[in-house]
């Protein structure tokens, strides 16, 4: 069988070639170009200037730290909260939902395919002060006047949790399904209480799914700006918004590029170590 595999080692490379070329042109090359741009002098539009690290110095001194911190904190909070919400949901779907499992999973997946601009718009009309769906209904039915979290960082954070919950849930569901039921029974039989069984058995066995979910959620949130734009008003500036401002309004491409490279570096620092430890064959080919 091994020898058989070796003789077939060539076709794989040919099948990979079109995808590889496409990714080189549209994924790797842009990253390289952005990196090159980030080394150009401030407010230039060409790629032929003298190389400089000035933009990176500005990135750390000129108040770009706040948007970056906000994005990192927002991503971390979203990852933790979605994991806490998704774990019981995945456990219920996998172990207890029975015939309802597939219908419920489909219902949870469906909103992913509705544009996030539609859903965030919906969230904004729901949360809107006075005439919003929530405030208006409470006022009309119960005569209660409530305030609103719209246009605060809390609203943006809430929106991020809302948008990214399915991205945590489905990888986690895969992870939970990797736990053989008899391992949990064995732990219980050997005296583990619910918490001990969760910590010692379920969490480590579901770890691959949890890691993927956390990675996906964190990275998607790191770049997220629609939540802050639609729900957060002007209360928060996320890193993507800061980059966009450099590109569009300030017309300072090298500065925007430097900020982009910083986000890419943060992403790579988080993604690459985890991804190199995961066995993709095992996860997709279960």
């Amino acid at each position: 069988m091994d020898g058989d595999m070796n003789t077939r080692s060539t076709p794989g490379r040919w099948f990979a070639a079109p995808v590889a070329v496409f990714m080189m042109l549209c994924f790797a090359a842009p990253i390289l170009i952005v990196t090159w741009y980030s080394l150009m002098p401030s407010r230039t539009f060409g790629l032929t200037g003298d190389l400089t690290l000035e933009n990176y110095r500005s990135a750390f001194t000129d108040g770009y730290g706040r948007p970056l911190m906000w994005s990192l904190m927002g991503a971390a909070t979203t990852t933790v909260v979605t994991a806490i919400l998704a774990w019981p949901t995945a456990v219920i779907l996998h172990r207890y939902a029975g015939k309802w499992a597939s219908v419920t999973s489909a219902l949870i997946a469906l909103p992913i395919f509705i544009s996030e601009s539609v859903r965030l718009f919906g969230m904004s009309v729901f949360l809107m002060p006075r005439g919003g769906i929530l405030a208006g209904t409470l006022n009309a039915v119960f005569g209660i006047q409530i305030g609103s979290i719209m246009n605060t960082w809390a609203a943006a954070q809430f929106g991020m949790i809302y948008i990214h919950l399915p991205f945590m849930l489905f990888p986690l569901l895969l992870g939970i399904s990797l736990i053989p039921a008899d391992r949990i029974e064995a732990a219980r039989d050997l005296g583990a209480n619910r918490w001990q069984s969760f910590r010692e058995i379920e969490l480590p066995l579901a770890a691959p799914g949890l890691m993927i979910g956390a990675l996906l959620t964190f990275v998607l949130c790191l770049g997220a700006n629609a939540e802050a734009a639609i729900l957060g008003g002007r209360a928060v500036t996320v890193i993507t918004a800061a980059i966009e401002q450099r590109f569009n309004y300030a017309q300072d491409w090298p500065m925007g590029a430097a900020l982009t490279v910083i986000v890419i570096a943060v992403t790579a620092l988080i993604v690459l170590p985890v991804l190199s430890r995961l066995d993709l064959n095992k996860l997709t080919g279960r």
Binding site: I114, G122, F126, Y162
Partner: peptide, 8 residues
């Protein structure tokens, strides 16, 4: 997950 969609 559905409240915003119904809100729209």
């Amino acid at each position: 997950l559905y409240i915003p969609i119904i809100s729209v």
